[in-house]
Design a binder for these strands. Structure first.
Lengths: 343, 343
DNA sequence: TAATATTGCTAAATCGTTTTAGCTAAAACA
DNA sequence: TGTTTTAGCTAAAACGATTTAGCAATATTA
């Protein structure tokens, strides 16, 4: 009982007109192709009646446009990327695009494979959270004419368009807050590597401390590897605390959340034993006890801009604005102030 | 400097062979088509050299198969669906499928539109978290020959294949735990509507209390509407507490998380003032203070089964196992026991 | 009235694969 | 030796849309 799919020729033969004419009508171009209004209406009506749904594979083959944008994130189950995906989805559908997505897991080989298959699936453009070491690969893709926009992270030395949060701003906001609350001995934690976006947050941390004439020990910049980071993070945090660190600035929600787990496990009290501020704003930061001071990126704006840019590149080959840096906002909560924890 | 895409005919003309032959080789069917091994190797080599990537639009048009599965969830930014999506993604890619996704927002009209566009984009099959009232619509789609499997929620009176958690089991586990911890006056909260899956959790709640000969007041089954549920939930929770309710069983993470927000805002202490147990296991349940007792669905199994089933339906028209009900596991934490909150 | 422009439509090529049918030459058979 | 099989390849149709070129009939202009 499988109903056959309705195609243009079904409508055409039912009305005794040509396929071309039906196509003109269905694509909304009947005026410029001088189809009489009378016929146009008839076509629309029978298309409706028959339940016509265009075959987008055929259309994609003919036009070279699929109406699909590929989205590559680090991990769709991470709340930050989940939110990004959701906003990009909204914005994309507003512009008539569907989304195909995949998670790279921060692995270069997997990342390349994903991007390649997305391209071979004829996506019109790509919105990408790039992984370490993917710069030259992505440049090659861009040079092959694939519309690409980076999001969340960028490669500043390249000409790859991007939409990112202002890491210097966010890093400064959080660091400043910790200092203003009377903490001098503070440390930051970041994943090791050349992703400039996160490094900017650390640089802002350093700059801010320098401006305030606070000395930084080398141990206060804690770099951890990506794999099995939980174990190493725990060790480093505990050592830091033993060494007298009073506060932490975490550069990513993934690190911040794991740190909370570690503090809980080791019965380290926030903010009594240690004060904390983190990038991003997952639910746990808002609802946990204590609430966690954080810097929330402008996810909506980041998402909408990335769609807008990739759409422009798709349509015009380039975008008028290919480098966008957006500021987020500081959310002061209980975790950052020992003296006034009822904030 | 836009490099043109390499196609089969490029490889063919470079080697002076026919397109068909190249196609046979590239699709791995060279043996049954009696291509000499020597030539097959040559073809593979030059395909590699030229960086050939198949045009899947063309392939989809010709074969009627796109290699894409459509995934419709309620909200990709909800951690539960984020995790589901991630697992489905893994499993799908293992079977050679890409995912196209969209969020329904629990809105029927949006849901229908999404499913229609996914179908017109030639997805081979659909994995769907259905919304209220979508049963007849989905049945029609199934009858049109679209491979569909429901996930997380099902329509038991229909023949739509599904993979879901065992709501009776989970509901019973959580309710029993609250009772066993000495709480008699407990209430549950659920979204109003005919989604049997959630209703089963409530039925299990009722059954369990009945079995224990505990009387249930009608106010103890709290039904809330989907839109603007936050306000109503707050009111209902506060009233219940005023009325002497000692504990709550929340049927979804969305409700449970919002309840935490409300308790926090109203300075209601868990488990001192009220004990709590909830379906699902978002980060906040594990890391918050107190930790929240919950029932964690078998997300991995749910996801992998749904992919397996939809794949079978795609390939064979039906699946050997179209109705799967999986049990999850109870995670006992601090929120459910007043007496022993150092659990 | 004749030349030109416009209106309303259609035919047919095209996109890049897959797949069926069939062709040729060599191998196997009688 | 002549016939049948088999191996190894190619030609061409097909998928369903879009789009260019062009045909007739009518309308407009000189």
């Amino acid at each position: 009982m499988v109903k056959k799919k309705v195609k243009l020729s079904d409508i055409a033969s039912k009305l005794g007109v040509s396929v071309s004419l039906v196509s003109f009508v269905m694509s909304g171009k009947w005026k410029e192709n001088r189809v009489s209004q009378e016929l146009a209406k008839k076509v629309q009506k029978t298309a409706e009646e028959l339940g016509y749904q265009p075959n987008t594979a055929a259309r994609a083959l003919r036009t070279g446009k699929s109406g699909v944008i590929g989205l590559v994130v680090a991990d769709i189950s991470n709340s930050f990327y989940g939110k990004i995906a959701r906003e990009i989805e909204n914005e994309a559908s507003r512009h008539g695009f569907q989304l195909m997505f995949a998670s790279s897991d921060e692995k270069l080989e997997k990342f390349k494979k994903i991007v390649d298959t997305l391209i071979s699936r004829q996506v019109d453009g790509l919105i990408i959270v790039p992984v370490k070491g993917s710069a030259t690969y992505l440049i090659r893709k861009k040079e092959q004419g694939i519309p690409i926009v980076l999001v969340d992270r960028n490669f500043p030395k390249t000409k790859l368009p991007f939409v990112v949060d202002d890491g210097r701003f966010g890093g400064k906001q959080l660091t400043k807050l910790l200092i203003d609350n009377g903490h001098q001995k503070i440390a930051t934690v970041v994943f090791k590597g050349e992703l400039s976006n996160y490094n900017e947050r650390v640089e802002a941390f350093i700059d801010t401390l320098n401006q305030e004439n606070i000395k930084i020990a080398s141990d206060d910049i804690i770099e951890i590897p990506e794999r099995n980071f939980q174990v190493i993070l725990e060790a480093k945090l505990l050592i830091s605390i033993k060494n007298g660190v009073q506060g932490f600035f975490f550069t990513q929600n993934k690190i911040g959340i794991e740190a909370l787990r570690i503090f809980k496990k080791n019965k380290i009290k926030i903010p009594e034993d240690i004060v904390v501020a983190s990038y991003d704003n997952p639910e746990i930061f808002e609802l946990g006890t204590p609430t966690i001071t954080c810097y929330q990126q402008s996810i909506k704006e980041i998402s909408s801009h990335s769609v807008k840019i990739v759409k422009e590149i798709i349509n015009k080959g380039h975008s008028s604005l290919e480098k966008i840096i957006l500021k987020g906002r500081l959310i002061e909560r209980e975790s950052s102030n020992k003296l006034n924890s009822s904030l």
